[in-house]
Write a protein that binds this DNA or RNA. Sequence first.
DNA 1: AAAAATTTTTAGATTTATCTAAATATTCAA
DNA 2: TTGAATATTTAGATAAATCTAAAAATTTTT
Lengths: 218, 218
Amino acid sequence: MHSFTEENYLKTIYHLSQLNDSPVQTNAIAEGMKTRAASVTDMLKKLSDKQLIDYIKYQGVTLTERGKTTAVGVIRKHRLWEVFLVEKLKFKWDEVHDIAEELEHINSGLLVERLDEFLGFPKRDPHGDPIPDKDGIFEPDQNIHLHEMCQGDKGVIIGVNEYTSSFLKHLERLGLTIGIRIEIEEIADYDGSVELLVEGKRINVSREVTQRILVNYK
Amino acid sequence: MHSFTEENYLKTIYHLSQLNDSPVQTNAIAEGMKTRAASVTDMLKKLSDKQLIDYIKYQGVTLTERGKTTAVGVIRKHRLWEVFLVEKLKFKWDEVHDIAEELEHINSGLLVERLDEFLGFPKRDPHGDPIPDKDGIFEPDQNIHLHEMCQGDKGVIIGVNEYTSSFLKHLERLGLTIGIRIEIEEIADYDGSVELLVEGKRINVSREVTQRILVNYK
DNA sequence: AAAAATTTTTAGATTTATCTAAATATTCAA
DNA sequence: TTGAATATTTAGATAAATCTAAAAATTTTT
Ligand SMILES: [Mn+2]
Ligand SMILES: [Mn+2]
Ligand SMILES: [Mn+2]
Ligand SMILES: [Mn+2]
């Protein structure tokens, strides 16, 4: 089996590799893992020895199939536990990420499948992120970031990509939660902030926020 | 916070200290933790520095109040998770102990209390062990081991003190599960095995088994 | 109360994951 | 295309938890 640390590295590498299709760089991993580049290099050697990543010195890394399977498995567990915490234990969406960081490393294949079943095979976690099925398949979805939308565009908030309690509470105060319908009224040249129509009200949202909201629009 | 290892040591020391009221010895801990006496000595120093145990060289250890609170907290989580696995995820009683060994170390006070509430504040785990409440209080109970009972005694199986899958499956085959009423028909001098009346049938049970079954009798 | 047996501790390694500082490789930009 | 900036790796330490072997303390037995 893999240590918690190894699993966290694989998850980080997976998420980074989603951002673009070139190999993931040491420094990016170091930032994601909140550690130093030298520590990352050490771990990359280890993951490479275990055939979880393809690693060429100075050239960054890509996950092998085994590495990807492991990473997706951890993500699956993370998101299922988040659903459990919110749906069954009445946690709020801003309270569950850190607990799921721990629960995601519990290793029992049967547990994951039973949990999935108990939750009714949910497709998304409380932050709108898709939950891979037991074969690691994600439901395809084409979202865009709110900051990529144009004046007049309409859509429904489908997810976020920051999970800190402070950010999520801020969104709640703004009324920007999952499932909410929005329309872009105006984009300010000056600071990139956006004027939105949300449930009949006009609100102004900073670029920091629009970059972290995913919208499903058609 | 405490590491998984520290928590496991505290739990082991707690269980051993329940067996008699003298200080717990290094070798006993080593056996319980499946490690070497030298490793135990190292850890005892650490736990002592953290004021979780009172430790006098060569004289064994006792838990401090803080140590006891921590140990009972871990036991509480272990047993609540076992209830969750059996009651909600349909695991069998012989499948849950090892998973609970991992889940017991998830640290979130809110999680434990919400879980307890979700489960309806259960008083016992699937093996009949009492679950301490949030203040660490156990429901008082006076059980005896099946091997301590005498010919003619009657009672109800209320728990076990071994949690291996092989033992628990063996009990199931014998029909000796929690809540079952039994009566001692005869005790063999030769090997200490016991003739029991269980649901109208006479069965013979070895001493290895009778030592691991707890009975509530009056 | 010695000697023997047992228990516990110390000394010194090992493994894993981390760090800082220095060396080296790669990329960017003049 | 060379020098500067950036990114990455190596070297050498550290901290946690473990180990074996040997020394020391305690307990038991004679
Ligand atoms: Mn999360
Ligand atoms: Mn994690
Ligand atoms: Mn158990
Ligand atoms: Mn444990």
